[in-house]
């Protein structure tokens, strides 16, 4: 029974750890499906986390915090759009720039406004998104097997967790069952065809980036207002890049993205749980190896050893009408 409880606990933390990855991954999905590479997921999450925690603690409201996180994150997405859509700049370079501006400005502004070494004040109960306990969770907790699964895994998460997982079918529906989604995918494959049909390539791509900004904003808010009770400098710690890896791993598909993020979240949860304690058969696995595993897996996938990851064809290429 102890083993079973341990597994449920690992799965529970898997869900918690994969939520920011999932939101950022879906964010990247919108952007890359429209033909805009986005290395700047990391930076947008970071400004979202900062803006969310700062606004929540100043205005004493979790929802104002979430709104602010989305607003600032979208603003950064628009900078990316301005550089890479309007001025046809290099999308990678623009993404790198956004990551730096985000990393620096959150620390400088955090220190100037709150004087806590780049942190925001610890969030009070009303200023965070609290866990939602589902009806009957406490009653069934002692029921074997189903009890812990219902009480730990399904119930007891915050609003943003459920939102993140609901975003998966929603994203699928938007991309594959709406006119906007069809055009968005088309503009990522062949923008000239979309242009010929009389649809603005630039506006379509800007809208895709707005979706990206909203989702990275929520991802950031989750980090600073759910997982952690406040903003800490550099708190994204490479999650934006793992999300990017997950996106490739998922071959730019929403449902696959969820599984990829759960896998990477599980690796993280297992690494924390094991902390260097030996596994049966394999023996002791270094923590660093577990941390590097998502990246190693992605490289192996990219090398074409596990299926083939084919990115949207027009990805990374600025659209020039005259050609």
């Amino acid at each position: 029974m102890d083993v079973f409880i341990a597994i449920v606990q690992i799965l529970d933390s898997t869900i918690r750890l994969s939520v920011p990855l999932l939101l950022a991954c879906l964010a990247g999905l919108f952007s890359e499906r429209s033909g805009i590479f986005d290395i700047g997921l990391e930076g947008k999450m970071l400004v979202g986390a900062f803006a969310g925690a700062a606004a929540a603690s100043v205005f004493h409201s979790a929802f104002i915090g979430l709104g602010m996180a989305i607003l600032i994150s979208v603003a950064f997405a628009m900078v990316h759009g301005f550089a890479s859509i309007t001025h046809r700049g290099n999308q990678i370079v623009s993404g790198v720039a956004i990551n730096f501006i985000a990393a620096g400005s959150t620390i400088i502004l955090g220190q100037a406004w709150f004087q806590q070494g780049g942190r925001t004040p610890a969030l009070q109960p009303g200023e965070r998104f609290d866990a939602i306990v589902w009806p009957g969770a406490d009653a069934v907790r002692d029921v074997p097997v189903i009890g812990p699964i219902y009480a730990e895994l399904i119930s007891g998460h915050s609003l943003l967790v459920y939102l993140a997982f609901l975003m998966v079918p929603f994203t699928w529906w938007v991309l594959f069952r709406t006119r906007f989604g069809l055009r968005l995918r088309a503009v990522g494959e062949n923008p000239a065809a979309v242009d010929t049909a009389g649809i603005s390539v630039a506006w379509l791509r800007y809208r895709a980036l707005i979706c990206t900004g909203i989702l990275t904003g929520v991802a950031g808010a989750y980090l600073s207002m759910v997982q952690n009770g406040g903003f800490v400098k550099d708190m994204t710690a490479g999650k934006g890049y793992i999300a990017l890896a997950a996106l490739i791993f998922a071959k730019w598909k929403p449902v696959n993205a969820m599984f990829a993020c759960l896998l990477f979240g599980f690796l993280d949860a297992a690494a924390i749980r094991l902390q260097g304690s030996p596994l049966p058969i394999i023996g002791k696995v270094p923590v660093q190896f577990m941390q590097a595993l998502p990246y190693i897996l992605t490289v192996i996938l990219l090398a074409g050893f596990i299926g083939k990851a084919i990115p949207p064809r027009a990805g990374g290429v600025p659209y020039v009408k005259e050609r």
Partner: peptide, 23 residues
């Protein structure tokens, strides 16, 4: 009020204006 992280912002802005927005 200004820590060394100011450099990171300047670095980002230089990459943005000299790189992505060079045109």
């Amino acid at each position: 009020a200004i820590s060394r992280d100011m450099i990171v912002i300047i670095q980002g802005l230089v990459i943005l204006f000299a790189g992505a927005l060079e045109h």
